[in-house]
Structures are given as structure tokens and as C-alpha cells.
């Protein structure tokens, strides 16, 4: 299977190093064009005016909050069932990034909600479930480092990730299942997007840019953790020799 092939760190590092320059380049191009289009080219909204530009940083952050958690859940399954050695690294490297995106989604959402809705926060199903997601990320990061034995921490975190995964579809469908202040989906919905193309394209650019940003950082962090593992091996060899 494909992931067996990359269980070998040296092979993974070779692939990561080959791919990284392209990831960085694509990230920069997509974020730069998304920012430019979103701030200077895209029109104001007919009802939300210029405040709609917050969409270009709020929505991609929210998408990433869920996407990264889903990746962690997949990595957790690979770790728990298949014992894939890189899965734990992928999960622990992803969690802080996902937490950061969730935080951004919450704060930019507040900054958008205050002028448009009239409040910084409500405990509706959408906002509450995203806040829960943020706590799940923090919990995952805490569990990862809570044990002397990193393998135990990784396993506990993996279990938490899978238990918490039920929150992801809840977030997605909260605006459909319950009365919420947050409006229903504008992009990923049956019937297609309800966003005008002049606004949709900058959003897509930013969404892809954020995704590549995550992938770039993920590769760098796994690489960093693999080197960290090598250093710890040297540490234990040094101890043995002493």
C-alpha cells in the first residue's frame, strides 16, 4: 500500500524535500493573488458592504479548521489500526496549525459578526460547535505531551481525535439542523455556490492558499520531528556508550 512506502523516514524526507519548493511557491502565489483580489478587486457586497472582505480570511480559516481535524482523524486511524509510524507525527504536527486556524475563524468571525449581526458572540449551534473544536485541538495537544512515553501520548491523542470527530459533521450541518444566527452554507451546498463569481474566485484562491500553507508547514514539521527523533537516537547511543 502507498503508505507503507512512506513509512521509511528517509524516503519520506526525499519526497518532502522534492515537493517543498513547489508547495512554498504555490502557497505564496495563491495567498498573494487571493489577498490582492480580495482587498482590491472584489466588489463590496450589496448588503454587507466592505465588511464582506473579512470573508476572505474568515471562511478559509474555518475550512482549514475542519480539514486539518479530518486529517488528524485519518492519521489517528492509521496510527491506531495500521500502526503507521509517520501517522503520529502527522497528527501532532497538524494539531497546533488546526488550533491556530480555529482560533482565527472564531476571532475573525466575531469581528465580522459585531457589525453585521450586532453581537460579538451567540451560543448558537455553529459557533458553539466550532468553539468545541478549538478545545478538542487544545486537548489533543495536551494529551500528546502529557505522558513521559510519547507513544502513549500519541495513542491517547489519537483516541481523543476520533471521539471528537463526530463534531465535524455537526459543525457542517449545524446551520441546517437547528435555528442558528449563522447563515447556511454559501459554497459547499447542493445547488452550487450562492456567491457571485467576483467574490468566489478570491475566496477559492485563499482557500487553496491556506491549504497549501498547511501542507507546507506539515511537511516542514514532520521533517523537523524526524530529525528530532534522530537526535534522540543519538542521545540514547551516547548514553549507552557512557
Amino acid at each position: 500500500m502507498a503508505f507503507d512506502y512512506f513509512a521509511n523516514p528517509a524516503r519520506f524526507l526525499r519526497l518532502a524535500n522534492a515537493v517543498l519548493p513547489w508547495c512554498v511557491g504555490a502557497t505564496v502565489i495563491l495567498l498573494a493573488s487571493g489577498l490582492y483580489l480580495g482587498l482590491f478587486v472584489a466588489p463590496a457586497d450589496y448588503q454587507q458592504g466592505e465588511s464582506v472582505r473579512i470573508m476572505y480570511v474568515h471562511v478559509p480559516a474555518a475550512w482549514m479548521a475542519m480539514f486539518v481535524y479530518t486529517n488528524i482523524a485519518i492519521a489517528s486511524i492509521l496510527s491506531l489500526i495500521w500502526r503507521h509510524p509517520l501517522a503520529d507525527l502527522a497528527a501532532s504536527a497538524s494539531a497546533p496549525i488546526g488550533a491556530a486556524f480555529t482560533f482565527l475563524a472564531l476571532v475573525t468571525g466575531s469581528l465580522w459578526g459585531k457589525p453585521m449581526w450586532g453581537t460579538w458572540w451567540v451560543w448558537d449551534a455553529r459557533l458553539t460547535s466550532v468553539l468545541i473544536l478549538f478545545f478538542l485541538y487544545l486537548g489533543h495537544m495536551a494529551l500528546t505531551h502529557a505522558f513521559d512515553n510519547p507513544a502513549r501520548g500519541a495513542k491517547a491523542a489519537a483516541v481523543l481525535a476520533l471521539v471528537g470527530f463526530v463534531n465535524v459533521p455537526i459543525i457542517k450541518f449545524s446551520v441546517d439542523w437547528w435555528n442558528t444566527l449563522h447563515q447556511p452554507a454559501s459554497v459547499f451546498r447542493a445547488g452550487g455556490p450562492t456567491i457571485h463569481p467576483d467574490m468566489l474566485w478570491p475566496l477559492i484562491a485563499m482557500g487553496l492558499g491556506y491549504t497549501l500553507f498547511y501542507i507546507t508547514l506539515l511537511l516542514l514539521r514532520i521533517k523537523s520531528d524526524l530529525i528530532g527523533a534522530r537526535l534522540r537516537t543519538l542521545d540514547s547511543l551516547r548514553q549507552d556508550a557512557a
Binding site: 466592505e50 465588511s51 472582505r53
Partner: peptide
């Protein structure tokens, strides 16, 4: 930003700061 500058610029500013911090710490 059509009177919404107080909300738009902190949103973008915080985004840039946090994403830059992620890159730098990595």
C-alpha cells in the same frame, strides 16, 4: 472600508500575525 475598517483590518492583521508566527516557529 465603508466604516467597517475597525473590523476588517484587525481581522487581516491577526491572520497575518498568526500565520507568520506559525511559519517562524516551524
Amino acid at each position: 472600508m465603508g466604516s467597517y475598517g475597525d473590523y476588517v483590518w484587525p481581522s487581516y492583521g491577526l491572520t497575518v500575525v498568526i500565520m507568520a508566527w506559525l511559519v517562524m516557529s516551524t
